[in-house]
Amino acid sequence: MRDNPVLRVVTKIAIPLILLFALYVQFHGDYGPGGGFQAGVIFAAAFILYALVFGTRAARTVVPPAVLRTVTALGLILFAGVGTVSQLLGSQFLDYDALADNPLHGQHIGIFLVELGVGITVAAVMITLFLAFAGRQDEP
């Protein structure tokens, strides 16, 4: 599909928009529909589109497997880390009240970080899934 100019141009215009939309869904999830799970999947969809049009080899240079593996673990560590930090600050595991001076603010920070962790891991796992399946096929 790399030789089709229409596909190439449209993909290059669409990918930044998809990434931007994913970030909007991620960070606006407190006020409207959205959150880490959806944002992660949409973020991954941009990379999958790139891999479909430009080939998995090109996609692997954009996100090298070593980076992908690290990032996958990073999201989960962030989530569990927020829980541990709240525990160290004197409240219960995953109870965000202690993260700031007042409980409401603490909850906001906690939910923001946890959703970010969810988004990172989900996006990385979805990209991994696609690259693992598509990389199995012999590319021309």
């Binding site: 959150g35 799970f37 999947v41 989900v122 796992v125 979805m126 899934l129 693992a132 399946f133 199995r136």
Partner: peptide, 20 residues
């Protein structure tokens, strides 16, 4: 269900990988 959908696709992918 929100979480179940995303977990569902991850486990589906695992099943498909086994099929491959």
């Amino acid at each position: 269900i929100l979480t179940a959908i995303v977990v569902g696709v991850a486990t589906t992918a695992l099943g498909l990988a086994l099929v491959v």
